[in-house]
Amino acid sequence: MMMILLLILLLSFFHVTMIDYLYNNPTYYQLDAYTYESDDFRSMRLGNLIAESGPLDYDLLTSLMIEHNYDLTDVKDTACHTDRLLAVKPAEYRKLKQAYETVLGDLKFFPIPDNTNAASPPVTFENGWMDKRTYGGERGHEGCDIMGTERPRGYYPVVSMSDGIVEKVGWLEKGGWRIGIRAPGGAYLYYAHLYGYSRQWQEGDAVKAGELLGFMGDTGYSTVEGTTGNFEVHLHVGIYMKTDHEDEMSLNPYWVLKYLQKYRLKYSY
């Protein structure tokens, strides 16, 4: 009996000592130093390692992000310490993992389908997160623009990245003709500057992933509905999620779109 009690005491001491070590080890301190509402999380720097992978392993993604200070841009291997990170702050770890699942878990398709007509030029996009915008007051660009190269407004189809429910639709001064869809997991997906809709969408309509929403355009930057031509033809993609302290928080869609590029529907247009 005494031997069993001694063994329990030794194991308890070892466990506490290990947790103290991990908690004070700078490699793992990022779990406390950052939260899923930080600018580091919002930047969503998944990196090519994740963007070019298959279906996501959210424990792996969460662990890698913590260990690499929320930036996988130059990371080339998946070495991480998930069990040890979970031992330090399990609640915070799981909350961060859930945040990644909320943003990425429902996404199935890149919003611009592949054109089976080889003569059509591809679309392009760059990381323009928080670039300066001045219309309606100086602000940061909370989205990613997919540019429709060498084709007019109304040419490129726009499909839904996820299943969901139409939450907002119609004209916005800055966004032009837009549609906002709430995915099942809670992310809000915003498609702006459309030239037209595929049908007369109403708030509350159900949408399937891959369903045609409308067509890429250049509408907006005006209080007059239907205004076009104030900028180049493109699709503005925005991603938002609810947090404990704000109604909605924007995230950088760039790396998310990089990840979705391998999931493109085939259209002829």
Rank of each mutant, 00 (worst) to 15 (best):
L10S: 15
F13D: 10
M18R: 14
Y29K: 13
Y34E: 13
F41Y: 11
F41A: 01
M44K: 05
G47E: 05
S53M: 05
Y58A: 03
Y70G: 02
D74S: 12
T78D: 11
A79Y: 11
R84W: 12
L86C: 08
L86N: 08
A87C: 09
E92D: 15
Q98K: 13
A99E: 09
T102D: 03
T102W: 01
G105M: 00
K108R: 13
K108T: 12
F110D: 00
P113M: 00
N117E: 06
S120E: 12
P122T: 04
E126M: 07
M130H: 15
G136M: 03
E142I: 03
D145S: 07
M147W: 11
Y155H: 09
Y155T: 05
V158K: 02
S162R: 05
K168Q: 14
V169I: 09
G170F: 11
K174D: 10
I181C: 04
Y191N: 02
Y195N: 14
Y195K: 06
G196C: 09
S198D: 14
A206K: 11
E211Y: 02
E211Q: 12
L213Q: 04
L213W: 01
M216L: 07
T219E: 13
E246M: 08
D247Q: 09
K258R: 15
L260V: 09
K266R: 10
Y267A: 12
